[in-house]
Design a protein around this nucleic acid. Structure first.
Length: 477
DNA sequence: ATGTGC
């Protein structure tokens, strides 16, 4: 994904040929990279010629796609693009010193959209696609598919069991068995036909909203109750309430709890891809803002996306419900309390006396007295929090610690021995996961929490003990 | 994030 590494022909050279940033520009860079064996001079001459007469290259084995993109771009008049504002409004940043520059650049562009009302960057923010992860954007009467993200409705769910810590510690083998038996991980994975779960979401009329969505229902059913890959997990841990919480109905004390993190699987990903593509066709923005293409809420496409997003959110919730339902039944556990919050979604909310659409892409809703879960890492605590309703953060907080290292960097620099030692030191048993999910790849959650004391108050601390994540190819054992 | 690509 990192396209900036040692290309024979770089962006500046392309620009000196007369290429301008856009889709064709990216294709030209890739063509040049793929055919480096031709040598720099030959490539530069060829790229200049394609730019001058793209029509002559429409059937060329190497440059046909580049030629088509150039013709396509030239056919769009300058004034077909929706202009950005010259200067974007200011936005609040929490924990700025730990946020990478790329995330701030993306947020600055988002602030220039003509529909933008307000924005904020959470302390776990990092660069994403369109809106940064950890970005919050309030807009007027529009929705941005990539402001929600690919994993629509991705969320945290916590079940607090009436099980003492001591019982967990003497029966860990049983908890581990059930963790493996009741959960499914891995990209593309679902349940076999005779293992499929049932849930009311499968009867949601929104599955019939159009043939495209209807086609996704069978896979959604197979994946109901699964967790997927990446940073998703299901884990047992110990949750400590220093004080009782009357609203939740949990007295002060220490309990065993189940915490899950996952989203809407293939269903949400397919819907996100489909509606982002549609938004890009209907909302032509300048190159740097193209991934922020928006749909008017009053438009047919906007209403369709909203309905699809709502379905994906309900489906993501059902996924967690199935996991938690199965686990409680398998353990014979009584659930004292449940907390759930999504952190990739768009909401209709009041902000500063005005109705806005708030996009939270990797940000926890933190309106006044709203409960949320902010996970740390597999060896660092997560927190059950209560929102303070801070206007400047648009009633939001971070959705975790955030990455300190990229996946590739983590795989390169962290050893299996180091990771094993870290897990052992914290008394954590891990099933699955690769080095890219090593705890050292994440920021210090305490630093992140310290940056958002104005946004949330901590109600309880959750310490992971038995963690399951997707297997990954880099594992050696 | 996602079972499949510029």
């Amino acid at each position: 994904m990192n396209t900036s590494t040692n290309y024979l022909i770089n962006s500046e050279e392309l620009m000196s040929l007369g290429y301008t940033p856009g889709r064709a520009f990216g294709i030209a860079l890739r063509v040049a990279h793929k055919h480096e064996h031709l040598g720099k001079e030959v490539l530069l001459a060829q790229l200049a010629d394609v730019l001058a007469t793209p029509e002559a290259y429409l059937t060329d084995a190497v440059c046909s796609k580049l030629a088509a993109a150039l013709i396509d771009e030239a056919s769009i008049p300058e004034d077909a693009y929706i202009p950005l504002r010259d200067a974007g409004a200011d936005y609040a940043i929490y924990g700025e010193s730990h946020i990478e520059a790329g995330a701030r650049t993306q947020m600055a562009v988002a602030m220039q959209l003509p529909v933008t009302v307000a924005g904020a960057l959470m302390p776990d923010a990092h660069q994403g696609y369109g809106l940064p992860i950890g970005g919050v954007l309030a807009v007027e009467n529009a929705v941005i598919p990539y402001g929600v993200g690919v994993d629509i409705g991705c969320r945290m769910a916590l079940s607090i069991y009436d099980i003492p810590k001591a019982f967990f510690e003497t029966n860990q083998a049983q908890f581990k068995r059930e963790l493996i038996a009741q959960t499914r991980f891995g990209a593309g994975h679902g349940f076999k036909p005779d293992e499929r779960a049932d849930h009311a979401v499968l009867t949601d009329a929104a599955f019939g909203m159009n043939p495209f969505v209807a086609d996704l229902k069978d896979k959604a059913w197979a994946q109901l109750g699964t967790s997927g890959g990446g940073n998703h997990f299901v884990e047992f841990g110990i949750i400590e309430f220093a004080e009782g919480d009357p609203a939740l109905g949990v007295p002060a004390g220490t309990y065993v709890a189940l915490l899950s993190h996952s989203g809407s699987r293939g269903l949400g990903a397919t819907l996100a891809g489909h509606y982002t593509k549609l938004a890009k066709e209907l909302c032509r923005l300048p190159y740097e803002a193209q991934n922020l293409a928006y749909l008017g809420l009053d438009s047919e496409a906007g209403q369709e996306y909203w309905q699809a997003m709502t379905l994906a959110g309900d489906y993501a919730s059902a996924n967690h419900e199935v996991i938690h339902r199965k686990m409680a039944a398998a353990l014979g556990a009584e659930v004292l309390a449940k907390v759930e919050n999504h952190h990739n979604f768009a909401w209709k909310e009041q902000w500063n006396g005005q109705e806005v659409i708030v996009h939270r892409k990797g940000a926890t809703p933190a309106g006044k007295d709203v409960l949320g879960i902010i996970p740390g890492s597999m060896t660092a605590p997560g927190f059950l929090v209560r929102g303070k309703g801070e206007t400047a953060s648009i009633n939001s907080a971070s959705h975790g610690a955030g990455r300190q290292m990229s996946r590739t960097q983590a795989i390169k620099t962290i050893s299996h021995e180091t990771m094993r030692a870290q897990l052992k030191q914290h008394g954590v048993t891990l099933v699955g996961a690769g080095l890219d999910e090593a705890p050292m790849a994440y920021k210090d959650i305490h630093t992140v929490m310290a940056a958002q004391t104005d946004l949330v108050a901590v109600l309880a601390t959750f310490t992971p003990r038995l963690v399951r994540m997707a297997d990954d190819g880099s594992r050696e054992d």
